[in-house]
Design a protein around this nucleic acid. Structure first.
Lengths: 153, 153
DNA sequence: TATTGTTATACTCTATAACTATA
DNA sequence: TATAGTTATAGAGTATAACAATA
């Protein structure tokens, strides 16, 4: 934010610009973009306990409780005790959750296209490449393994 | 943040990664990176009223009051009524402020070099180009004119 | 009356601590 | 004893509203 051109300012301003549209795009989902992130991670990492979801998304477990409370109340996810460990609750998308997520993904993609419209594809690719590098340099969940199987009931 | 690879997640995670080092780099300055931004903008836009500083940095005027209070108390800036309009207070760097800013700029540059160390220069350039485009698409102060003269007393 | 800046207050977001229920 | 999750509470950070001084 300081001198425009500083990496910090650029990242902050870019994030603000992105979020402005993103929050609008995912609007119906409780907790906005954060709620969308959780829905998205639930689909991707399937059963996923809340703690695991939190680790992957860098969201505190207490925050996760509130978000999932809201998503459950809105009928977008279910929360059931795990079969092996009844403490670890399995979060899963409902049909309505799948729909809401799919709709959000589409509106978000449209928003990204709008936002990146004027950026040449080559620049865009290297933008993503650079950001991916930076993101991985941070401590956000380097210990997350890959997804195993995935068959929602 | 949702699916790693999403632009939103990438921007958020990159900003976190950057800020981790940046806050450490500017540590002695009150209000951390925000304080650094203000110092930096004061040097760049010289006299600058508080309101103008806030507009340029997307910082609320009430927040600006607190930040400048702290910077003034730390002896890094002075705050005097403007000659033409005594409501609009002119903020200026002290010698100590110049020093603190210069030191922070250097540590920050080192931190950026460390963070971007593994990124090829071509990618880095296009990363900055892409971010600059995104940042300007946002509403953060498009109505800010350029700097006029600048001679601190 | 409008504007700069301050103060006090309220709100949002997040983290900490204490608790429960399982293991 | 340790862990998953919940609840209540406290803490940043930010914004809103009312105010003082000046224009």
């Amino acid at each position: 934010m300081a001198e425009r051109g500083d990496l910090g300012w650029l990242l902050g301003a870019s994030l603000r610009a992105y979020m402005e549209g993103a929050e609008r795009a995912v609007a119906p989902i409780p907790f906005g973009y954060k709620g969308y992130m959780v829905l998205s991670a639930v689909r991707r990492f399937c059963p996923g306990t809340q703690l695991e979801l939190g680790r992957r998304l860098a969201i505190d477990k207490t925050v996760m409780t509130h978000v999932i409370d809201a998503l459950e109340e809105a009928g977008l996810v279910t929360r059931r005790p795990g079969p092996a460990d009844r403490r670890a609750r399995r979060v899963a998308l409902t049909a309505a959750g799948e729909e809401a997520l799919q709709a959000a993904v589409e509106r978000l993609a449209a928003e990204e296209r709008r936002l990146l419209g004027g950026v040449p594809v080559a620049v865009r690719d290297q933008l993503v490449e650079g950001l991916t590098y930076l993101a991985e340099k941070g401590g956000s969940g380097p210990e997350c393994g890959e997804v195993s199987d995935c068959s929602v009931s």
